[in-house]
Amino acid sequence: MSLSRRDLLAGAAVAGAAATLSPLMSTADAAAPTAGAQAPGFYRYKVGAYECTSINDGANTFPMPDGFVKNLPKEQALAAAEAAYMPKGMVTVPFNPQLINTGSKLILIDTGNGVANLEPSKGAVGRTLQNLAAAGVDAKAIDIVLLSHLHPDHTNGIRAADGSIAFPNAEIMVPAKDWEFWTSDENAAKAQSNPMMKNYFANVKKTFAGIETKVTRYDWGKEVAPGITSISTPGHTPGHSSFAVASGNSKVLIQSDVTNIPEFFLRNPDWHVLFDVDPAVAQETRHKFYDMAAAEKATVVGFHFTFPSIGHVEKDGSKYRLIPSAWNPTI
């Protein structure tokens, strides 16, 4: 049986007529009143013997700023957003920390925007703690907080709403090169004329004030936690790091911010996002990383991929495309 345009229009007319016959019906009269909230945002997946969980910190939708893509006209970036069905004139950036349960350690990779931003953002971001709890994880049980780099949307979740440490029993691990860059008074002084960079330096100072003794610096190419090896992926920041999580014969690549939203910067790896400290190096890193991921047919997890943020990357000429993984109800 096939439906014609006439059939569809007729059906719409009947539905409209039915609505007009009950003008006094309200939401309160409905059998199932609207809930007004999303379900908890967590998704489990397996890497060998490890149980991993993608934790949704939220998604921020905002008017696309001038220079969001630095090396092409704004109109072209807006067209890419429209092609990705984002709200007109806007751009949406998701945030997804990852929890790795090795059996002996609970490791949280990145922490999100921080619960202090939950109310000011009207629930858009800052959901990591509540979604960890929904997933059955007590923040006090986290053994390691493993940071890919020191931008606010990855570090601010270290602090609870009252400013205390959200993960009081965790060792905090940071990339040595990023720590060196962002804690340098000389670098901070050079950044005073750039409002975004000025804010980043100030945020690092505020976030880590008084907890320096809990911070361990790690280098690239090392096993930084059981089954987790750090990968050199600079450009977004000087010490930006990705991770290979391996157990048995299984492996996933956690790409952190090698790309920001994939609809823009994975499809167009030569575009320069506003947030990259060294755009040329970030561009080179994207090609190297995605060539490797595509050649290995590796599962890739992206901090700024649409939740649950898991998929595969394929080469598409000189560009790449993301193939989201199918939802697995049984992990």
Rank of each mutant, 00 (worst) to 15 (best):
L3K: 13
S4Y: 08
D7H: 09
A10R: 15
V14F: 11
A15Y: 12
A18P: 00
T20Y: 10
S22T: 11
L24A: 13
D29A: 09
T34E: 06
Q38F: 10
Q38G: 03
P40M: 04
A49V: 05
S54R: 07
A59P: 00
A59F: 01
F62P: 00
N71K: 14
A77Y: 04
A77F: 02
M86Y: 10
T92W: 09
G112I: 12
N113I: 04
A116C: 07
N117E: 15
L118K: 12
S121K: 01
G126A: 15
L129T: 12
A133T: 14
A141Y: 14
V145T: 13
H149C: 04
H151K: 15
D162P: 03
P168W: 12
N169S: 05
A170Q: 03
F181R: 00
F181D: 02
F181W: 10
A188M: 09
K190I: 05
Q192A: 09
T207K: 08
A209F: 09
K214C: 01
W220Y: 13
T233H: 03
G239F: 01
S241E: 02
F243Q: 03
A244T: 08
A244E: 10
G248K: 10
S250T: 04
T259N: 01
I261F: 04
I261E: 11
F264H: 00
V277I: 11
K297L: 01
T299H: 05
G302M: 06
F307G: 00
P308L: 06
S318G: 07
L322A: 06
P324F: 13
S325Y: 03
N328I: 08
P329W: 11
